[in-house]
Nucleic acid binder design. Structure first.
Length: 870
RNA sequence: GGGGAUGUAGCUCAGUUGGCUAGAGUGCUUGACUGGCAGUCAAGAGGUCACGGGUUCGAAUCCCGUCUUCUCCA
């Protein structure tokens, strides 16, 4: 069975069982500080389980792309070494939110596996929860009893809390689970060892394929479990593993999910899979990682040096490293796999196909930049190896190479061992640990439990219509971090505060109680669909009623910038073409930033056209036409642009200004005229194929023009009110340059003249041409004269003094010949004579200068000079 | 968010404890030579030593701040 068919059969099976089929949510999470990527099928539905949002349907099924690369489930370093760990994988899942429970979940799972997919029931095992004394939970006999209707009782195994009790986190919804395992070993092996003993033992051919979670408890902060009024089903089936079973192969990498990519790698690198273990590992690493990276880029997450982007960069670099070391690929090649990937997965995940070109460009650029890093590292490592004492390279040195220059430590170790050297791994790890400690300390944060004030989960956002409201607090908690100190997160029953999202910053403002006392709200964010207000302290009477007021000025400026962002988006697509896609935006009160896909630098004309386009729409006084809670299809039909990597509900909000229509949750001006004016302040590249525009509007533009105007008039003033200041300035610059030249030649001439005079004043002392004299020259002049004279004698000793700006200066020149013969040192001379002018100095043996505060001492210093040659 | 590195001629980079007339290679201009692989030789132009402060007689160099780029950690 082809993987495409495996996927579609799953979805249609649950569609028949009255499930709503939803597309995979984007992998990159934007409003969950505890998680960077979707790492399981349930992550996009977290808010439903927490009760923060009502589900759109109580039966849902989907296939969800998941990424496990950071945090608790970190498999990254294992990927490639076995046949079943992946960074990116698909999880097929069906959900019940307060609807069906164990009976149906088990019956359908069995029906799908054995009837639809036709898996032999004799290779299946199931597990049920055995109970846990500490939690006071009993064995899950319900699940056991349902199972025994389908499967022999000796194939139902009991599992402990670790394997068979699923929890989302330290607190929240949880419950027992029941896993389905499959044993695909050969008959001989089965005869030798019973599959029963291998379940949950990390055997590559006895694997869990499906986990059915029965959410029936809520774990409270105290650790106590309470029974949930609404019970939920959460299931997750590993798509790649299922394909392995259905295609009768022994490894996920032998399924048609991976084989097209592996064949392509073989072609490009001229290596064969399944011949040499090291090559195999590299091929598996690359085939896995290219998927993760391509999907992330398609979801709008570009490689970068912080946060989620950094994780993506690390994955890609790991792939490059393996290709570099084991497949001898020293030039970019991973980007060439994107085509094959699009062909095999593009149908189920259209975002891949649409953005193929961009994905290829970004990956290629990243590969190139990392190969440069490797080149640089190799040079540095060579230097380190040459300087190594004994046969051990210190951990500090290796760490510096890794930390500062990004050279992978395993490559360092490999190259060292090839050269017969050893790496001090202990020292390296100690340094790494130090660095981790530093980072952790800096970002250390402690979060207290939520304190509930009123039990009201239905929080309402009213900030589209009003900036002020009478509110009550529903819950709060304290969070402490090193950077911000103690802060309170506060939730209201309803709020006019816009939480950070869609690129737009969160609102600021204040809460005022009946007595007029005020608490400032310094930021607003959204977490699992709950709007959280940040304050430095709590109001005195938390049970009271408060007037919540949004900082209107800041909000208005932000709205100007947000609306301008939409117009800018429209302008770019109009002027550059429809290949322009939004790749990110930041809407602040002071400026806006817009990243988009485009392949070349914008010309001055294009920038001007874009600016004009936007400003025409501002002058056009276009009114805001806002539609809330309309079906997504309706909005799309109207021409609304939706973004890849953005998670939309079934009903959306559409924002229209003239011909610009976007799905958007942000706040906007009521008429484009409010923006006053739009001005681009910079354009540049952020990655290959991605450009960035920064712009300002309204008050910021006024300030911008004021500033520029003032600078302009200041400049014109300085140029005696020149009519054409640019020309005047240019003339000045040219004049300045030629004057500089003239001075330089004049000084050289002067030096020559003086040289001629001084030559006559030289006195021979002990075979040395000697002179000590005060001259009316600056430091450069002294030098010139000294070197001019110096080039004519090889037995010269001169000391010049001069007074400049009330400071004394000495210059001493001694022919190199003399330095060698008579053991003289100009540096030493000026240092010793420097004390007469209350200063010091130095230089090289043949030429040195000294400065001091006491010009009166120059003559004395000069008179002492003779002592060096007698 | 935290740490480390980086910024010097069009390009690639040296520049030690503060004092080297700011350098090399390459590229550019000019001239001469030339049957040999990047032709040779000579002369020349080209610099806000990232930016802003400070210390010092003196800062490319030391200190503080800002920015750029790279990089590791979270």
């Amino acid at each position: 069975m082809k993987s495409q068919e495996v996927r579609s059969k799953f979805l249609s099976f649950f569609e028949d069982k009255k499930h709503t089929i939803v597309p995979s949510a984007p992998m990159v999470l934007k409003d969950d500080p505890t998680l960077m990527f979707v790492n399981s099928g349930m992550a996009p539905f977290k808010e439903y389980f927490l009760g923060n949002t009502a589900p759109k349907s109580n039966r849902i099924a989907d296939t969800q792309k998941c990424l496990r690369v950071s945090g608790k489930h970190n498999d990254l370093e294992e990927v490639g070494y076995d046949t079943y760990h992946h960074t990116l994988f698909e999880m097929l899942g069906n959900w019940s939110f307060g609807d069906y429970f164990k009976k149906e979940a088990i019956a359908w799972a069995w029906e799908l596996l054995t009837k639809v997919y036709g898996i032999d029931k004799d290779i299946l095992y199931v597990t049920v929860f055995e109970g846990d004394e500490d939690d006071g939970t009993k064995m899950d006999t319900e699940a056991y009893d349902f199972w025994k209707e389908y499967i022999a009782e000796d194939r139902i195994l009991k599992g402990n809390k670790k394997d068979n009790f699923w929890e989302m986190g330290d607190q929240g919804p949880c419950g027992p689970c029941s896993e389905i395992h499959v044993d695909i070993r050969s008959a001989e092996e089965k005869a030798k060892v019973s599959g029963k003993t291998l379940v949950n033992m990390d055997h590559p051919q006895v694997v869990e394929i499906w986990n059915l979670v029965f959410m029936q408890y809520n774990r409270k902060a105290s650790g106590v479990l309470e029974t949930l009024p609404n019970k939920h089903i959460d299931t997750g089936m590993g798509f790649e593993r299922l394909c392995m079973v259905l295609q009768g192969v022994q490894s996920n990498y032998d399924t048609d999910v991976f084989t097209p990519i592996i064949r392509e790698i073989e072609t490009i690198t001229n290596k064969d899979y399944a011949k040499d273990e090291k090559v195999d590992i590299a091929i598996r690493v690359i085939s896995d990682h290219v998927r993760a990276v391509a999907f992330s880029i398609a979801d709008g997450q570009l490689p970068s040096n912080t946060g989620a982007g950094y994780v993506i960069r690390r994955i890609l670099r790991r792939a490059v490293r393996y290709g570099f070391t084991f497949l001898d690929k020293k030039e970019p090649f991973i980007y060439r796999l994107v085509g094959v990937l699009c062909e095999s997965m593009g149908k189920a995940f259209p975002e891949l196909k649409v953005q193929k070109q961009l994905i290829e460009n970004v990956i290629k650029e990243e590969e190139q930049s990392f190969l440069r890093t490797l080149d640089q590292g190799l040079v540095l490592l060579n230097g380190i190896m040459k300087g190594a004492k004994g046969d051990v390279v210190s951990g500090e040195k290796a760490f510096e190479l890794y930390d500062t220059y990004g050279f992978p430590i395993d490559l360092t170790a490999l190259i060292l061992s090839e050269k017969g050297l050893k790496l001090d791994e202990k020292g390296f790890n100690a340094q790494l640990e130090k660095q981790k400690k530093r980072s952790r300390a800096a970002s250390e944060m402690s979060t207290d439990d939520w304190t509930n004030i009123v039990d009201d989960r239905e929080q309402e956002f009213i900030g589209y219509d009003t900036l002020e409201a009478q509110v009550k607090l529903t819950r709060y908690r304290k969070v402490s971090s090193k950077k911000d100190g103690d802060m309170y997160q506060i939730v209201f029953n309803l709020t006019p505060f816009y939480p950070e999202g869609g690129g737009q910053v969160g609102d600021k403002g204040y809460l005022q109680d009946a007595h007029g006392d005020v608490v400032y709200i310094i930021d607003t964010k959204k977490e699992s669909n709950v709007i959280i207000h940040y304050a430095k302290n709590l109001p005195k009477d938390i049970n009271g009623s408060f007037k919540a007021v949004v900082d209107a000025k800041q909000r208005h400026r932000t709205e100007c910038n947000h609306t301008a962002t939409h117009l800018l988006h429209q302008a770019l697509r109009e002027i550059l073409g429809t290949h322009v896609e939004q790749k990110g935006s930041a809407v602040h009160s002071k400026y806006l930033r817009f990243d988009f896909s485009h392949f070349s630098k914008l010309t001055v004309e294009e920038l001007r056209d874009v600016e004009n386009f936007v400003n025409r729409r501002i002058e056009g006084k276009l009114p805001l036409i806002e539609k809330r809670n309309i079906p997504k299809e309706e909005a799309i039909a109207e021409g609304a642009m939706s973004l890849f990597g953005e998670k939309y509900g079934d009903t959306v909000r559409s924002i229209r200004f003239g011909q610009s229509v976007e799905l958007c949750g942000g706040t906007h001006v009521s008429n484009t005229a409010d923006i006053w004016h739009f001005k681009i302040v910079s354009e540049g590249a952020v990655a290959s194929g991605i450009r960035r525009i920064e712009a300002i509007t309204s008050d910021a533009v006024k300030e911008f023009y004021h500033e520029n105007n003032r600078a302009y008039y200041d400049m014109r003033d300085l140029l005696n009110n020149a009519k054409e200041p640019v020309k005047a300035l240019k003339n000045l610059q040219e004049e300045n340059a030629s004057l500089k030249k003239q001075i330089e030649t004049l000084l050289k001439d002067k030096a020559k003249n003086i040289k001629a005079e001084l030559k006559n004043e030289l006195k021979e002392v002990n075979g040395v041409q000697f002179l000590a004299k005060k001259l009316d020259l600056d430091a450069g002049g002294l030098k010139d004269v000294a070197f001019e004279l110096g080039s004519q004698f090889d037995n010269l000793f001169v000391l010049f003094g001069t007074e400049q700006n009330g400071k004394a200066l000495l210059s001493c020149y001694i022919s190199k010949q003399l330095v060698a013969d008579k053991d003289l040192n100009a540096g030493q001379v000026v240092r010793e004579l420097g004390k007469y002018i209350q200063g010091g100095g130095g230089g090289q043996p043949f030429f040195a200068t000294a400065g001091g505060k006491n010009p009166a001492g120059i003559d004395e210093a000069l008179s002492k000079a003779k002592e060096y040659v007698v």
